[in-house]
Write a protein that binds this DNA or RNA. Structure first.
Lengths: 353, 353
DNA sequence: ATGAAAGCGCTAACAT
DNA sequence: ATGTTAGCGCTTTCAT
């Protein structure tokens, strides 16, 4: 396939197992200079003669030298790495956050390493510890499940920004979607369409569920629909939405619109509604949250609140870069404005108008 | 919220910016022993007196000492870390692979660090380089998009296993789903249900698309359905499935069953089929691939081929652990058996039977 | 412009 | 059981 130039026998003789890697000393020797000079070339110092530079680069190439990041970081006492803990790799929403993180960190020339505790607090904590031992310059915790006390401790050790989890931490920064506003714009949209009996299937104890619910209720009140509002408990899962909707449709007056905790839950709602013999949006309008890739699938295509995940990611990197550079020590808690993406699951209320 | 015990003024005085971290020397001093003794305690050596051990642990606690992984790895010349490149963080399928990787690596006491190039070959390559500079002990590349030559080079530098990408690399191991078999079991299932005009919307140039298609065709031939087989080009996206199905339904005899390249494509097929006025599985049976969380959504619920992703992940770790421990140098290419998960998108062929 | 030398924080013989 | 002594591979003054 590829023309391989390894001498057939020699290779097995010369480098049977672990051919030792070239170090900066090997490069220096081959280029006939000192190792400091090599270091200068590699870090792009100006005061190096073109000849020396060429010789060094030549040697680097010949030995396929690869700098040892650990040694470098040890000497520099900076890794130029940020560690990122992602609570749930399976949720497409985090993919969007990661995009924002990567885009901004690339611009700032930081590299990112990801870990996950797979939604388990204990494993999340050890993942965080591992990153701290690696001496990452700063930490991003995306919707972490660890206790507040852990956040507090971690924030004291290294610059840390928490994403999509409400925290009044004195040591960590935070960037979250404005869930209260999110709940509000959903109500406004539905009210504009003439809906009055609007129900919310909430996210239970999930991150952001409480403010989302509060925003919903406040907006209903403001619209004079206080008495029409109904909230049932759910969760950020398909099952949660499904069960919530069933509960909703079984007793009490049927709502003409449902606001689900997130997109996954919205899909569950969809099933329950259709199972009950109603149609979306004909009988019931439906709104999700996250505007994940699910919401835009042709076959589903429902209205959803976009959290501006990439923006959350890039803001997070900015906060950390600030802390690293300026050493700011007071915590900053920021919020990003969500916006509604209207699709085909919401329509004007039918019936007596 | 949390009762904060920081002395109001002192903190700003004593530790304004970067309070230097305690090192092993600080611990040694405080415990009144040598640093080697501290090292012995920390690595859990047997030959340490209980008193010394207690004193050291005490000092560690008091100074909230955290070992420096870079220094340790530098000295040990081993990081006990594997690097993982995930091509696409948004595809739920990779979440399943990651679970397998984590479970097995935890057992073997390796830690994992993840990176992604977000489907961009150039960025993937630099992500790989970054991990190599970190001197990870080995590398997992999940469905990488980089050229073969890069795999070959990387495999020469460090133990590497490639996942879900066919490669005859002489330097990297690989673990892939048996796509040929996957294509076959789909045909067998559909043929059992009485289907004859079966179409496949393939994954274009995507990983595994070619063998999947080959398996499909071979099985059709074996079932004597060679002339009934139809293959149209698609891709591993909703759009690919949608366009493929439209093409399929516009010209030629309508198939009674469609095998989509993957789950996302299957969802696209679903839309196209319904748009054309047909129903699934009433008129057309549908099968996807990956058995991702999408396939099991109540509202979709379609038959799909399960790749056993967690098993792929755990096998990958085993291959690497072997290489690291035994220094095996010949490449091993393995395959995992997929299995069909039947849901409600496939049923007996209707009509003249 | 280049080199010598002193670390960075830790481990690992080798002594004792 | 514990301490001494070299490094690991690199950066960074400080000389020259």
């Amino acid at each position: 396939m590829s023309r391989d130039r390894r001498p057939p026998a020699a290779s097995a003789e010369t480098a049977p197992r672990k051919r030792a890697r070239a170090t900066i000393l090997d490069v220096a020797a081959r280029a006939g200079v000192s190792k400091s000079l090599v270091s200068l070339v590699l870090t792009g110092s100006a005061s190096v003669s073109p000849e020396s530079r060429a010789a060094v680069l030549q040697a680097v190439e010949a030995l396929s030298y690869r700098p040892n990041a650990m040694a470098r970081s040890l000497a520099r006492r900076r890794t130029r790495m940020f560690g990122v803990l992602v609570s749930d790799l399976r949720n497409p929403f985090f993919g969007d956050i990661v995009s924002g993180l990567l885009a901004r960190s690339t611009e700032l020339e930081y590299s990112l390493f990801f870990t996950t505790g797979e939604r388990d607090p204990a494993r999340e904590e050890s993942a965080i510890d591992a990153m701290l031992e690696m001496r990452v310059d700063a930490l991003v915790l995306a919707a972490p499940r660890v206790p507040e006390a852990v956040l507090e401790r971690v924030g004291r050790e290294t610059p840390t920004v928490v994403l999509n989890r409400a925290t009044d931490s004195g040591t960590c920064d935070s960037v979250t979607n404005d869930d209260i506003l999110g709940g509000r714009i959903v109500v406004e949209h539905l009210a504009d369409l003439g809906h009055r009996r609007i129900a919310h299937i909430d996210g239970g104890a999930g991150a952001g569920a409480a403010p989302r619910r509060a925003g919903f209720l406040a907006a209903m009140k403001k619209a004079g629909l206080e008495k029409e509002a109904r909230v049932v408990e759910g969760s950020y899962t398909e099952e949660g939405g499904y069960q919530g909707a069933r509960a909703l449709l079984q007793r009490g007056p049927r709502p003409t619109a449902i606001f689900a905790a997130n997109d996954l839950a919205a899909i569950g709602v969809l099933s329950a509604v259709e199972e009950a013999g109603w149609s979306v949006p004909g009988d019931i309008s439906l709104v999700g949250y996250d505007n994940s890739s699910l919401a835009s699938l042709r076959h589903l295509s429902f209205t959803s609140v976009d959290q501006s995940a990439p923006e959350i990611g890039s803001m997070a990197i900015d906060r950390l870069a600030e802390r690293v550079a300026e050493g700011r020590s007071s915590a900053r808690h920021e919020t990003v404005e969500p916006r509604l993406v209207v699709r085909s699951s919401t329509s004007k209320r039918k019936g007596k108008s």
